[in-house]
Design a protein around this nucleic acid. Structure first.
Lengths: 236, 236
DNA sequence: ACGACGAAAAGTGTTGACACATTAGCGATC
DNA sequence: GATCGCTAATGTGTCAACACTTTTCGTCGT
């Protein structure tokens, strides 16, 4: 009896047009993407608390799908949960960020080597055009990612691509929000990119890998210097 | 009234000792681990459906935490969800598995190089004792992982370690359940391990990385040969 | 005034129920 | 006899409510 009552009530609410269930897949995905966006855009700073009732209200869902999304975020190392205290946006130490650059060196190095062997002529032309746009616009910040992205795609290795795209590049965007010492593109970048492009065009996998690893290692070392200068400002 | 009834019932159930809410963290973690165990042990075969009501009953939880666990599993690429059709254990093609070995080559190669520079004398002694146990027991299957694991730990890079431990090694265990063509340890393994150990003991990072990459690449190439032999059995 | 205690508020972890989708089973039709 | 359509059963996606925990804030005592 009670159940029937509840059901009738629910149906009435539905008929009134308050909210009909949509069939466009799962809400938890939308919420996941939304929270990722808030994190990498800086709207949710590292260390910030993820208030479940508030977020649920923001995204117009109940706490069920929201908690699903938070679980996914924790699995992706974007938030950390503490028992009975909820989730907070993860805070990475400089050491962890620099370790991630070692990881990136290994992955993008391998990717460049594979790309040199596996890229099609069409992809090669695209890579060259990306490089030329990069030079022209004199902006390596946003376009640099495209250059690297194009090479990773060309490696024909979805496993490596997934880690870089869905883990590293996402975190990089976040780190740039908060860590000013992280090395951005400089004049050196373009020359390094040119040499990498050249190696790939010559189908020289070994050389492409070496140059890519040097390129990323230089970014890491420069970041370390920036960090040291930041922590010891007496040299200024 | 109804609510009070439900509450009293719940309390009664609790008092009877059937199941009181524990404070040891979240159920979704336990369920996650449980399902991972079922997947890597072969109890849940690739392609098998994850029936939510059934699994919920098995683990003694409701579907809330269960769905949280499934979301985490999907994020870890252990299951794949299709809208309104639930989750199935992921099926990796041979190509994907072989790509993962390229990923492993990059990561473990880097890890070996870093380990050569960073391992303490204590860790080095441990690595040597693992190697010697491996020789003695003439079993590289189970111990090989320990040898590799020890090197990864010695690299002092938690980012690389996390991907290998929580992604690759977990999947490797699963793949070995279903893909007979995957290369296991052979006589060659011990000699390769010996040379890697030697390079690390000599603090020769470059050499350690090269040897580790060759080692893993050989596993990949041997697996490819096994696979080809399996698909073209006319040569037998 | 300041700190300890305790009640109220807010938040987290979990549950059972509901709306919609898919699937399986059955009978009618050709 | 096989196929198509309908119906019931099973399953997925979501929600609101509940139990317990943590935090907040007001009160009291010193």
């Amino acid at each position: 009896m009670v159940v029937v009552e509840a059901r009738k009530l629910a149906e009435t609410v539905d008929r009134s047009g308050k909210r009909q269930l949509r069939r466009e897949g799962r809400e938890s995905h939308r919420v996941f993407d939304g929270i990722v966006e808030r994190i990498v855009s800086g709207s949710l700073r590292p260390g910030a608390k993820l208030n479940e009732p508030e977020l649920a209200r923001d995204f117009g869902v109940s706490r069920g799908p929201l908690r699903e999304a938070i679980g996914r975020l924790e699995e992706r190392q974007l938030v950390r949960c503490t028992p009975n205290a909820g989730a907070r946006v993860i805070e990475h130490s400089p050491e962890e960020i620099l370790q991630a650059f070692e990881l990136r060196e290994a992955l993008e190095g391998m990717a460049a080597g594979l790309a040199a062997e596996r890229m099609t002529e069409t992809e090669l032309a695209e890579l060259r055009s990306i490089y030329e746009e990069e030079i022209e616009s004199q902006k390596s910040n946003s376009w640099s990612r495209n250059f690297h992205l194009c090479i990773v795609r060309g490696s024909r290795n979805a496993q490596i691509g997934r880690i870089l795209n869905e883990d590293f590049y996402r975190l990089l965007k976040l780190w740039r929000q908060t860590s000013s010492w992280l090395c951005h593109g400089t004049d050196l970048t373009w020359n390094e990119h040119r040499r990498i492009l050249d190696a790939i065009e010559n189908r020289d996998g070994e050389c492409a890998e070496m140059l890519m690893r040097r390129h990323i290692n230089r970014l890491r070392l420069t970041s370390i210097r920036n960090l040291a200068a930041l922590e010891k400002p007496e040299t200024a």
